[in-house]
């Protein structure tokens, strides 16, 4: 992987919930155009990391910088507008909205249309609406959702719901796309397809941060990997380095292997 510019820097971030230290002086960065894997056993702090990056939690100490500027105190929707988008480990779609509308909400993130545009049906409203609709349909095709666009999100199959989350996040036009266990609950074939999709997404110019439990998958798709355990970063490097890292094997692979065996 060429050394491109740093897109996001997690700088010595600590976050505590009462007595529990969910992230303990974690430092890593994400470079433009790469797929970075964030792995670690359950409860390691991966999702918490996403939450700090997207403004859901404030770091107890330390800083997250995006494009060189600190994110602290920025409102969540502003962070999204800056270019960080995410999916959720527990699917959080707008269930009573249609498939297309879900993606449109994402596309609206950069829309300048306001109340008066809508009320007076200004040309700006019309153009923006047309553009977002086209873009949303494109994205639905990219992620491979074949269901009707006017179907309610709640009525989609589990897999399509996961894919819809990705389309919705991509619609916000992010530079950095954060996927929180997007393949959870998928069968092996679906997983492979999803990883192909993630590669395709990166090739379109997005930077991807991927939380994934399945080690083999992460190895196959990522350029670099950061490993967390009990809120601490225990390793960072290329997939092959991580695979051979004794600390990682002890902390993570051992457990995973056992799980697979059972």
């Amino acid at each position: 992987m060429p050394d491109t510019a740093k897109l996001l820097e997690v700088d010595d971030v600590t976050i505590r919930f009462g007595g529990l230290t969910a992230l303990d002086s974690v430092t890593f960065d994400i470079r433009e155009g790469e797929i970075l894997g964030l792995i670690g056993p359950n409860g390691a702090g991966k999702t918490t990391c996403f939450n700090v990056m997207t403004g859901v939690y404030q770091a107890t100490s330390g800083q997250v910088r995006f494009d060189g500027a600190p994110l602290a105190k920025l409102k969540r929707h502003k962070i999204t507008k800056l270019g960080i988008a995410r999916t959720f480990q527990n699917i959080r779609l707008f269930k009573s909205m249609t498939v297309l509308e879900n993606v449109m909400v994402g596309a609206d993130a950069h829309s300048k249309v306001g109340f008066w545009d809508a009320l007076l049906r200004t040309p700006r409203h019309r153009h923006t609406e047309e553009e977002s609709t086209t873009r949303a349909k494109e994205l639905l095709k990219i992620v491979g959702i074949t269901a009707r666009h006017d179907e309610l999100a709640a009525n989609l199959s589990y897999g399509d719901q996961r894919r819809l989350e990705i389309a919705r996040a991509m619609a916000t036009g992010p530079k950095l796309l954060c996927l929180d266990e997007p393949a959870a609950g998928f069968n092996p074939a679906e997983k492979v397809k999803l990883m192909d999709l993630i590669r395709k997404v990166r090739d379109q110019g997005y930077t991807v941060l991927l939380i994934e439990h399945d080690m083999r998958l992460v190895m196959g798709v990522t350029d670099r990997i950061v490993v967390l355990e009990f809120g601490r970063k225990i390793a960072e490097g290329a997939p092959e380095e991580i695979r051979d890292n004794p600390a990682v094997i002890a902390a993570y692979l051992g457990v995973e292997e056992d799980e697979d065996a059972s």
Binding site: R76, H77, T80, R92
Partner: peptide, 15 residues
């Protein structure tokens, strides 16, 4: 509608 459905998710989608 997005806000009514899930306020956190809506915010994180830029609303």
């Amino acid at each position: 509608e997005a806000t009514r459905e899930d306020e956190d998710a809506a915010e994180l989608m830029g609303v």
